[in-house]
Design a protein around this nucleic acid. Structure first.
Lengths: 266, 266
DNA sequence: AAGTGGTCTAGACCACTTT
DNA sequence: AAGTGGTCTAGACCACTTC
């Protein structure tokens, strides 16, 4: 985002001032970015500001082209990238929609634990604990907060086919999830990220995970109903919303007796 | 790939027979595929056949457009997808190159184990065993062979900073890796996939991994110099070459005391 | 200066969905 | 029939690399 604001730097047909406000020398132009990237940033801003909410239809390519005074092809390329990053979903003949976690399709985007046999089953959740506390140093660092800032802590067990399989501990920035209560969490059906999205206006866009093998300690063994010492997958996740702002730290312990973590490399 | 062979189904300006050989009804046209997908398939064939080898420059977009009698934009879209799938690498001003495993850039594409502290280090390899044997049922199934078909078995340990960290077992189809000897494997510097690529003409394109937590048995403990029962990451990989043909089964045991498996979700 | 990929435009038609 | 995204074309200029 450099030159462009109202009048974008048109190039060919309309022989407007072209490169416009940039400081003459093209080779040295600092932080030049192509038009479609600027359009992409503008659309992302509208997503972030809530102008178009998850699940809603965004304006058509023709409309956006008119609004930004660029060609449809340029808008198209911007939306192509947003679609590749799963921020929006295109549907031929219908339009482009803001991505949402309220879909069967989106359920397994962030949960890579698959059953060794048979189809993925919906998880049964049991919330063990919800409390407010002050961020430990490590959590604060990951969430870009200060040590001691208020955070919400959640502990829960997820079961598949009645077998306790995942023990999760979550930390959320207190400022973003003010009204979050145990009741709300327990009564809510569907994926937790759906609740975060509709109740708190926070959309999880991407995440990074660090995976290790660990031994179940006494507490984990009890929560999952297994022997202490059983090998477990430790999955540390940091989730990000628009603008790469971290908004969730999660540590999961996965029992991989009947399940495995599945990953595609390419 | 349906209608098109010599004369592609041009659409606009040259008012040739358009949809051509397809069976009249457009809505029902069986397995229609867009032009750029057909071009992409043709380019992939040339990659697979070895017309352009890993690391080499492929013809320019203009040349390919002329060869296939389509516009440059159509070739561009085909190459865009091949680039997104890491089959080729574009370099502005230079051209488009066939992807190769002989690059620093490509080293960590298939190895997601990262040090907890500091920068990724190159691995030191120690080959423990190389032998020819008959494919066990499970390996045969994964490699799309028959049980008992000849396979090559490799066992090795990888160390980082002098610390044994990965115990690998590999199975390769014997038919594809005929001349593979212990000596060749030991003396070869650089990534194994580089050797497979240049010596045996087999390029690894993508892979799937299944990850579990396990306890080190006596053999693994000895090979890695750790206590039996230590939790290890079990990583089962199946690698594929062009046309989604499986060409490697690998089972790695990762020590995650000072390293972690890193994954991006989006 | 010439060649390559990268961006941008304008306009056409196709496939799909809804009215 | 009208609107949406999807494909295809043709031509222009830009940024980068090499000669």
């Amino acid at each position: 985002m450099t030159s462009m604001t109202a009048v974008p730097p048109h190039v060919t047909h309309p022989p407007v001032s072209a490169a416009g406000a940039s400081p003459a020398v093209p080779g040295n132009s600092p932080t030049f970015s192509p038009l479609y990237q600027q359009i992409k940033a503008l659309i992302t801003q509208s997503l972030q500001s809530g102008e178009w909410k998850p699940g809603e239809l965004i304006p058509s390519e023709v409309e956006l082209a008119a609004r930004f005074k660029v060609s449809q092809g340029t808008v198209r390329k911007a939306i192509d990238e947003l679609s590749a990053e799963n921020l929006v979903v295109r549907r031929q003949g219908k339009g482009t929609f803001v991505a949402t976690h309220h879909e069967a399709r989106a359920q397994f985007r962030f949960l890579r634990l698959m059953p060794d046999e048979g189809e993925p089953q919906p998880a049964e959740n049991r919330v063990l604990d919800v409390k407010r506390l002050r961020a430990p140093a490590e959590v604060a660092r990951l969430l870009d907060l200060r040590t001691g800032d208020p955070v919400i802590f959640i502990k829960r067990v997820q079961s598949f086919d009645g077998i306790a399989t995942i023990l999760d501990e979550l930390w959320l920035p207190g400022a973003l999830f003010k009204g979050l209560t145990t009741e709300r969490l327990v009564e809510y059906k569907g994926p937790m990220y759906g609740l975060f999205e509709t109740e708190f206006g926070t959309s999880m866009i991407r995440a990074t995970e660090r995976i290790r093998a660990v031994s179940a300690d006494a507490a984990a063994a009890e929560a999952l109903g297994i022997a202490a010492g059983t090998p477990l997958l430790s999955v540390e996740r940091v989730s990000y919303t628009y603008g790469d702002r971290p908004v969730e730290v999660r540590r999961g312990l996965y029992l991989t007796a009947r399940h495995h973590y599945e990953n595609e490399l390419s």
